[in-house]
Design a protein around this nucleic acid. Structure first.
Lengths: 150, 150
DNA sequence: ATTAATAGTTCAATAGTTGAACTAAATGGA
DNA sequence: TCCATTTAGTTCAACTATTGAACTATTAAT
């Protein structure tokens, strides 16, 4: 791999990723209820997928400080979307899971967001979507490996 | 395109994009000086690329409120990285551009960030990188079109 | 000349973040 | 067993980023 190519890719990637992050957030925001933020939606989706999880897990998975997770989950608990349950085997651990209202909000938000994202996805041929998502998923794994190695 | 496929892609994309955004930010953060935040780095990169630009342009390109841009540029001006110059033809307009110190900080940050990103990019075959970035750039364009249409 | 629109700022409120200091509980030698 | 260490999570102060409404200043339109 030539250094010039690599630098060019990095430049293109950095330039475009910020655009996609901001514009993607702006698009998704349209589908979010006034009450729900972008980060709250993704966090609830993650917890729903896992069924139950801990602050520490969220902190390492998303690469943020544990106190940031506490702050976020506080807001979600206050809204009645998330519950905290102390683990009886290890009483230091707190299990986070969605309340029925939380499930309901995420499901409803999913319907709105999916409708918006469909519009975007329809502009790409199937093979391109499939290949792109596969690389994106691989990127998520590599990022985790690189951070764990360090 | 089958509905089941589309929903599956959307689910995979939403799930993975939040991970990549957070982990990518955590990786880049290592290369940032204590003084510089993630968003400030990208904003300075964008302005450098454009040479000069306005608040309104930043606001529409990144899909955020104009007052958010004012707040960000205030912090950058305070740090001496960005300058504001009133346009003499249309005195409502303010032209934003990097100061020499701003250029210096971005260039230095680039060197640190590129070193980190190289490590990640080296794990992918060239064709995969090229295809991925091309689709990503197309995604940025489509997102802008969709938002303009609405 | 008055009204509209445009560019940008200010302000209050809120979400998200860090890092240090802290509590409580579990673990691991000596 | 006891004390030190580790682990899980919270609290707090300080900061960045964001929105939306109200505002100033300037230009454009009729």
């Amino acid at each position: 791999m030539k250094k010039r190519n690599v630098d060019d890719w990095i430049d293109r990637y950095l330039s475009v990723s910020f655009l996609v992050i901001k514009r993607g957030a702006a698009l998704v925001k349209v589908g979010l209820d006034e009450e729900m933020t972008h980060d709250q939606y993704y966090l609830l989706r993650y917890i729903r997928r896992r069924g139950t999880c801990t602050s520490t897990e969220l902190s390492t998975v998303f690469g943020v400080n544990k106190s940031a997770v506490t702050a976020m989950t506080n807001r979600l608990v206050d809204k009645g979307w998330l519950r905290r349950d102390r683990d009886q085997n290890d009483r230091r651990v707190v299990a986070l899971s969605l309340t029925p209202q939380g499930e309901e909000w995420v499901a409803e938000t999913d319907r709105n967001v999916y409708r918006l994202v469909e519009e975007v996805i329809a502009r790409f041929p199937e093979e391109e979507i499939e290949a792109f998502i596969r690389t994106y998923e691989k990127l998520a794994r590599v990022l985790q490996e690189v951070e764990e190695a360090k």
